[in-house]
Computed example of a mutant assay.
Amino acid sequence: MIEWRDEAALLATRPFGETSVIIEVFTAEHGRHAGVVRGGTSRKVAPILQPGAQLAVSWKARLDSHLGAFSVEPVRSRAAAAMGDRLALAGLNAVCALLAMVLPEREPHRAFYDRTVALLDLLGQSDVWPLAYLRWELALLDEMGFGLDLSACAVRGVNEDLVFVSPKSGRAVSREGAGEWADRMLPLPPVMAGRGDASGAQIARALFTTGYFLEHRLINGLADRPVPPARARLVDLIAKT
């Protein structure tokens, strides 16, 4: 029998039989991991299994290759913060959906796990959450091997007047460096580099650019699936803040 314990953020649940559910969690030391929760539809357990919930989990299986079974204990719920705020709910759904789609199964990403928990703990703080989400999404691309290089112009090597991102290389491009190709470039709002206006409109522009790489590099590289609709709802709400 194989067994381990860990801390985790709950990403998704789906029915399994009449009284059980399969949960997917993002764990600190074991990455994205799935398992069965027996009695997961019961009145006692079901309220614990809400997306974004912080859990203490124990996983058991006869073989490492088996689906296995989880026992869960609540650490803290994030449902109250999400349900009382449209932006928080959209953000929670987007984070969970993206992670369930793109994280490699059973591959640890401890530093990014810590960053994700910190982001989820900011839910409900609408004054800081959109910018924190943008930085998290940039970190997600970097963690998955598709990080953007915004340090200098890919064409001229300068680090001034960087206003575009190349959709091919993911590198910054200056206004002069883009030249006649400017209309084919993606926007590089200063907020992406930690400068300037962090308004909802500017963050949404930046998320348009990160969304391109999520869709055309990361997600299309995994499967022929679209970006989770929850993300589009989130970006729309951020643009209106």
Rank of each mutant, 00 (worst) to 15 (best):
R32Y: 06
A88E: 02
Q54C: 09
G211I: 04
V75I: 13
L186S: 02
A118P: 08
V235D: 10
V36P: 07
L188E: 10
G39W: 03
R62N: 13
S199C: 07
F213D: 12
A111L: 13
G145S: 08
L140R: 11
Q125T: 10
S174R: 08
L10T: 09
R205Y: 03
V102R: 03
R115V: 05
V173I: 10
T41M: 13
D236L: 12
S77H: 02
F213N: 06
D149A: 08
H109M: 14
R156T: 15
P74C: 04
H216K: 14
A88W: 00
D85L: 06
A172N: 03
M101C: 10
A154L: 12
A154W: 01
Q202M: 14
A172Q: 02
V36M: 12
P226W: 02
F164G: 10
I48D: 02
E3G: 04
L218K: 12
L186W: 02
D197T: 09
D85F: 00
L141F: 00
S77K: 01
V36D: 11
A79H: 07
A204Y: 03
R231Y: 01
D121G: 05
A53C: 05
E176C: 01
L49H: 04
T27P: 06
D224A: 15
R43N: 13
L119T: 10
S58D: 09
K240C: 10
L214T: 00
E107K: 11
G221P: 03
G84V: 04
D183W: 08
G194F: 00
V25A: 15
T13H: 01
D85S: 14
R5K: 15
V102P: 06
L99Q: 05
L188K: 10
M1K: 11
F112D: 12
A53V: 11
D183G: 07
G17F: 01
A118C: 09
E180Y: 06
L89S: 10
S77R: 05
H109S: 14
R233V: 10
G147D: 03
A61K: 05
T13F: 01
L63I: 05
G170E: 06
A61I: 08
K60P: 05
V117H: 02
N159M: 05
R171D: 11
W59Q: 11
V21C: 02
E24N: 13
G40H: 00
G196R: 03
L162R: 06
A139W: 00
R62H: 14
F26A: 02
